[in-house]
Design a binder for these strands. Structure first.
Lengths: 222, 222
DNA sequence: TCAATAGTGTCTGTCAGACAATATCGG
DNA sequence: CCGATATTGTCTGACAGACACTATTGA
C-alpha cells in the first residue's frame, strides 16, 4: 500500500517596505518548529477545500486576516527530506499586497522581513522564498504584477519604486511611463493628487476594474 | 483527522510532428478510465521517490521508455472534482523531446496527438495540456526551450520550424538567426550538413554542452 | 541551366534611454 | 524666488523586420 503523504499549502506573502521586497512570516503554533517564524501555511482540508486555491485563501485569511488582491500558484515543493514528519507535499502560492494593509490589519504573530536579510527558516522555506523572488523578478520585467503592491490608488513615481524594488534596479523614468501607458491597465483618479513635500504633487492612478484580477503582459519588456 | 489525499505525478510530453505541437498519450492500464488514453502518470511512491522530480523521471521511464532532455515542473492540479476517487493532487511536469526518439523507442501503448486536435480526455487532462501549451508558447518567445525538441543535431531552418510550431506563427528568418546567435547556446557541427533535396544543404548545429540542461533567456524576446 | 532552399548584406522605421525643458508645489 | 519633484518634449543610437542578393545543391 501507499504511505500517507502530508499535504499542505504554504504562502509567500510579499510586500514592499522602505523600497525593499519583504516577506511576511507567521509564528508557528504547532510542532514541528513550534514558536519559530515560518511561511504561513496549513494542511489541506479535503472536507472543506474544493481545491488548492480554496485552501490558500482559507489559510491566508486565518494567518493574516486579509485577502490580497493578487494570488498565484508558485510551485510545489515535495520530498522525503523537507519535513521531519516524513514525505510531504507543499503547494506554494505567492501573494502580493500593499504593505499598509498588513500594518493596519495588525494580525497577531506576523513579522515582516526583507527577503535579502532572512535568517535560516524551518523546512525548505528559504528555497521557497528564493523561488518566489525569482518569479516576481521575472514577471515584473514584462507585466503589471507590481501594481498589486501599490494599494488602491498610487502615483506613477510610487509605482516605479515598486517595480524597482521588485527588479532590484533603477529604471528610466521616461521609458517607465511610456510602458505603463502601453500596458493600458491604469486610469487616472481625476482631481486626486498625492502631496509629498515641497514640490509638484503627483497624479493618482488606479487599476482599471477589468484588470483587478488579471495580469497584462508587455510584448517587449520594460 | 485528515482525509487521505491521492498524490500523483502526471507528465505532458510534447513533441513536434509535421510542424505541429503534439502531446504523447498513454493507454491507462487501471481504473478509473481503464484503456482510455490519458497523460502518462502514476502515484508518488514515498518509499522509493526522494522527491517529485524523481517520481516524474521514474514514471516517464516506465510509461515511455525514455528520459527526455528537458523536464520541468508545470503546475499542480488539485481538488475534489477532478478524480472520481475523491480529493487528489497531481503535480504535473512537462517534458520536451525529439519526435524521432519516441518513434524509434516504439514503446507500447503510446499515441501522439496534435494539441489542437484533442478529443475529450479523462480527469482534467485537457486543462493540463492547455496550461502546458501556454507555458511552452510563453517560454519559446524568449528562451532556448524549443532547442530540446530538435534532437541532438539540427539545422537552423529545422530549429526555426520548431520555434514556429511552438509559437503558432511564422518568424522572420534574418531576425531568428540573429537571435540564435545572440542566445549563444548553439555551436556548429563542423563539416556536417543536412541534405534535404535539390538545394543548398544546411549547416548542422548542436547545443553547447554547458546548456544541455539549462535554458538561456533573451533580454528581449524574438 | 533551373528550381529550390540556405545563408548574408543593407536599409528603414521603431523604440529605449539620455537629455532637457516646463509645471507646480512648500517655504 | 528657490529647491524639489512631477511631467512632458525631443534627440539619438540600437535593433527588428523587410528586401534583396549570393551560395550550393539535385535534376
Amino acid at each position: 500500500m501507499l504511505e500517507p503523504i502530508i499535504s499542505t499549502v504554504d504562502i509567500v506573502l510579499l510586500i514592499i517596505q522602505e523600497d525593499r521586497l519583504c516577506v511576511t512570516l507567521s509564528k508557528r503554533d504547532k510542532e514541528p518548529y513550534a514558536n519559530q517564524e515560518a511561511l504561513p501555511g496549513g494542511y489541506i482540508h479535503a472536507q472543506d477545500d474544493r481545491d488548492c486555491l480554496d485552501a490558500a485563501v482559507r489559510i491566508l485569511q486565518q494567518k493574516t486576516g486579509l485577502l490580497p488582491p493578487y494570488l498565484e500558484q508558485l510551485k510545489t515543493f515535495a520530498g522525503a527530506a523537507r519535513d521531519p514528519r516524513g514525505w510531504s507535499i507543499s503547494v506554494v502560492y505567492f501573494a502580493l499586497v500593499d504593505a499598509d494593509l498588513i500594518l493596519s490589519a495588525n494580525h497577531p504573530g506576523l513579522t515582516i522581513c526583507a527577503v535579502d536579510a532572512l535568517r535560516r527558516l524551518p523546512f525548505d522555506h528559504n528555497d521557497i522564498i528564493a523561488a518566489a523572488v525569482e518569479r516576481i523578478r521575472n514577471k515584473s520585467q514584462y507585466s503589471s504584477l507590481p501594481c498589486y503592491l501599490a494599494g488602491e490608488t498610487f502615483s506613477l513615481p510610487r509605482l516605479q519604486k515598486m517595480y524597482e524594488a521588485c527588479l532590484g534596479e533603477t529604471l528610466n523614468k521616461v521609458s517607465f511611463r511610456r510602458k505603463m501607458e502601453e500596458l493600458g491597465v491604469l486610469e487616472t483618479v481625476e482631481g486626486q493628487t498625492e502631496t509629498a513635500g515641497a514640490h509638484r504633487p503627483a497624479q493618482l492612478y488606479r487599476l482599471k476594474s477589468e484588470f483587478k484580477n488579471q495580469l497584462k503582459l508587455l510584448v517587449r519588456g520594460l
